[in-house]
Design a protein around this nucleic acid. Structure first.
Lengths: 198, 198
DNA sequence: CCTCAATGTGAGAGCTTTACACATTAGAGT
DNA sequence: ACTCTAATGTGTAAAGCTCTCACATTGAGG
């Protein structure tokens, strides 16, 4: 079942696990196919039976990150207002990013060509749909839900990336970034609801 | 003066220029010290007389990006309201990012250790101060200007990074991301002004 | 004019990705 | 049960990268 014989038996998954671990330890740039293979105990060319190249391996690891992110929002508690919903989503998003900053970085690494890894884009889309579903509960169907979810995503994503890039240290303590995101989302949501009177 | 003799004469700057060009062409991950040296016409070890390592070279190139970004906001036209100011800043930020996505990516690459490159953090801070100065014109001195500028930065940065990471293609056409950022900022600013009655 | 600190070179150690020929084995068919 | 094949793992090696070190060259100050 596990690493015994000539054939590993579950190499693809073992490599993905090792990759995630490596990324957490050394960051997305510190990851190498060789090291992942070494940790799993196979030769350095074995991974290429399962992934066409290094980027594909990272993309597959990133995919698992997006799946976890989606699950995270599946179980998001239902709250009363549009504003509170937006605030909760933004805060949760930042919390996810801060839990494992390197994984988050990898998930959105610009090096990964989305057009070459359609499954990644697909899963990104599913996360997006969670946002839409949550917001839709408090909006009229005629309103531009898609647009709003994109805007909310921007807010959450900006706070998350600036935080884990250590760009906000002198402005806001790291532990309060989640709160920053939720208050940004709150103001944004109020601007919307007061304007359109929803 | 230029690349003639044994000594180049201006190698450091020439390397930085080559680095920026390389990053624009091949992305931050496609950059290599060797290739930059090759383009400038020096041996592959020459750059190490001017930069301790690859990351330092990238950080120095990123620094020039931040300087340009600051200049960009220095000449930002003064507008009437808090809301319009926020909208203009966000839109301009996204425009900057989209002009040379790879450079923008490099500027915020998580691989660069900000604590090791204090000048970078310093310059980031100066950009931040531009934001504050612009917003301050429309706020009472008692209001938390720093906090607001951090929130606005989040909004702009989120839209910019999602856009250049090709994560928004199915939601909003790339050409409209700048408009997305400005309308997000608008809602946010209205939420703030209507709440506090400024 | 002379020297020395700064700057560039060449060779090379030790990584990495990836291709390719070859070895091994699980499991489908008979 | 037995075979054969496709899938999976190995070993080697080419090409390229980062970075070090001893050595070469030269501009500028004394």
């Amino acid at each position: 079942m596990s690493g015994r014989g000539y054939h590993h038996g579950n190499l693809r998954n073992a490599l993905l696990a090792a990759a995630s671990e490596l990324v957490r330890e050394r960051g997305a740039r510190g990851f190498s196919v060789s090291e992942a293979a070494r940790r799993v105990g196979v030769s350095s060319s074995a991974p290429y039976r399962h992934f066409p190249d290094r980027d594909a391996m990272l993309a597959a690891a990133a995919l698992t990150g997006f799946v976890e992110l989606e699950e995270r929002f599946e179980s998001l508690p239902v709250v009363q207002t549009f504003t509170d919903t937006a605030a909760h989503i933004a805060a949760e998003y930042v919390r996810f990013a801060r839990e494992d900053p390197s994984r988050f970085e990898m998930m959105f690494a610009h090096g990964i060509d989305k057009s070459k890894h359609a499954d990644l884009l697909q899963q990104t889309f599913r996360v997006q749909e969670r946002f839409e579903a949550a917001l839709a509960q408090h909006l009229q169907p005629t309103e531009s839900i898609r647009r709003y979810s994109a805007e909310l995503w921007s807010i959450a994503h900006g706070a998350a990336t600036l935080a884990i890039g250590e760009n906000m240290q002198h402005l806001v303590p790291d532990t309060q970034i989640s709160e920053l995101a939720s208050s940004t989302a709150t103001a944004w949501a109020q601007g919307i609801t007061e304007a359109s009177g929803s």
